[in-house]
């Protein structure tokens, strides 16, 4: 798989609520792959790839925002930060970061105070975010001039290609899915499809799926697919909620996932001999799917996920072939949608 586009997504900022840098990249890529492209009030990208039929549409949503930090207080030459999304604080000390200020990007590192300077009992285990500081190497005066409360802070780690077709980097959650959806749009250029496809790169998923609910309300698709990442097996992660890296996408099963769509995806993957896992999601899925399903008057929804290791750390790992398989599964599903598909979605049997 060509990873240039994915790597450019991973190297770009675009934290929850501040998605402009990554949105610009995707906009540029999707411009030639879609018939219409616009943005919602919240900044989600909506790309329409028209089908040959009339009226029916499927929305494929991949959130483009990433977790990170935001400056909450400036103390002399150091910065205090709050989290944007559910960041894994255990891995923060020692990380290289970029502080995005109005005066340009500044390189920094996350420092933790020595144990004897922390309040009693706080030095055991992971040090709470409120005690961590960011050092950008500037004097207090320079910091006061250049950095403001509300400046975002993203990981500086560049994506790394590893052996065995693996790629490591921050923000694979969920830029891996954006890459899969983009690949799907590319494949659809030479495929016939009846249904309209709304490709959506949603905002603010990591802080409560604000983009998904508003985009679905605006687009009003007949069915919706949320593509996200799930937990791959790894050190200490071996239970039923985890999937082998490189074993294909997972197809969601449970409340948020419409049983008919689940069945259709499963049969399609079997027919195409695409390996897949079944992800049991008994309650909320923790993805855009939760909000897509209950938008407007309700939308039959399914969650398709790509397994990654070390979620919400700067070194998330994905098998690139899983991204390709996800793209292919999405393409074939879109191509399969016929004029009568909607009538087949019934609750009787």
């Amino acid at each position: 798989m060509k990873t240039d586009f994915l790597k450019s997504l991973l190297s770009s900022s675009g934290l929850s609520g501040f998605e402009i840098p990554v949105a610009e990249l995707i906009k540029e890529k999707w411009a030639s792959l879609t018939d219409e492209l616009d943005q919602s009030a919240l900044g989600s990208l909506h790309g329409l790839k028209r089908g040959s039929g009339k009226g029916h549409s499927v929305m494929i949503a991949t959130h483009m925002d990433a977790i990170g930090l935001i400056v909450s207080k400036v103390s002399g030459e150091f910065l205090h930060v709050a989290n944007l999304g559910g960041i894994d604080i255990r891995v923060l000390p020692g990380q290289a970061v970029i502080v995005h200020s109005e005066r340009g990007d500044l390189s920094g590192i996350i420092a933790q105070p020595p144990a004897h300077l922390l309040p009693e009992g706080e030095a055991k285990g992971a040090v709470a975010l409120k005690h961590l500081l960011i050092d950008v190497g500037l004097s207090a005066r320079q910091v006061a001039r250049k950095i403001k409360i509300g400046d975002t802070v993203s990981f500086a780690t560049e994506p790394t290609e590893m052996s065995g077709g693996l790629l490591a980097g921050h923000s694979l959650d969920n830029r891996a899915s954006v890459a899969a959806l983009t690949l799907c749009l590319e494949e659809l250029q030479s495929r016939d499809h009846i249904w309209d496809v709304w490709a959506a790169a949603t905002v603010q998923e990591e802080i409560g799926h604000m983009g998904a609910s508003t985009s679905a309300f605006q687009i009003r698709p007949d069915i919706a697919i949320a593509v996200n990442v799930t937990f791959a097996k790894g050190p200490g992660a071996t239970n039923w909620e985890t999937f082998e890296l490189g074993s294909g996408p997972t197809i969601g099963l449970g409340a948020v996932n419409h049983p008919f769509l689940h069945q259709q995806f499963k049969e399609l993957a079997e027919k195409l001999e695409i390996p897949f896992g079944i992800e049991i999601l008994p309650g909320r899925s923790g993805t855009d799917g939760d909000d897509l399903q209950i938008s407007v008057e309700g939308i039959p929804t399914i969650v398709i996920s790509i397994p990654i290791r070390y979620m919400h750390t700067p070194v998330e790992v994905v098998a690139t072939k899983d991204i390709q398989r996800t793209a292919r599964l999405l393409t074939e599903f879109v191509a399969m949608l016929d004029a009568d598909f909607l009538e087949k979605i019934v609750w009787d049997d």
Binding site: A41, M210, F217
Partner: peptide, 9 residues
């Protein structure tokens, strides 16, 4: 207000 309907700034 942000997420009502199709959303607002």
């Amino acid at each position: 207000i942000q997420v009502a309907g199709a959303g607002a700034m």
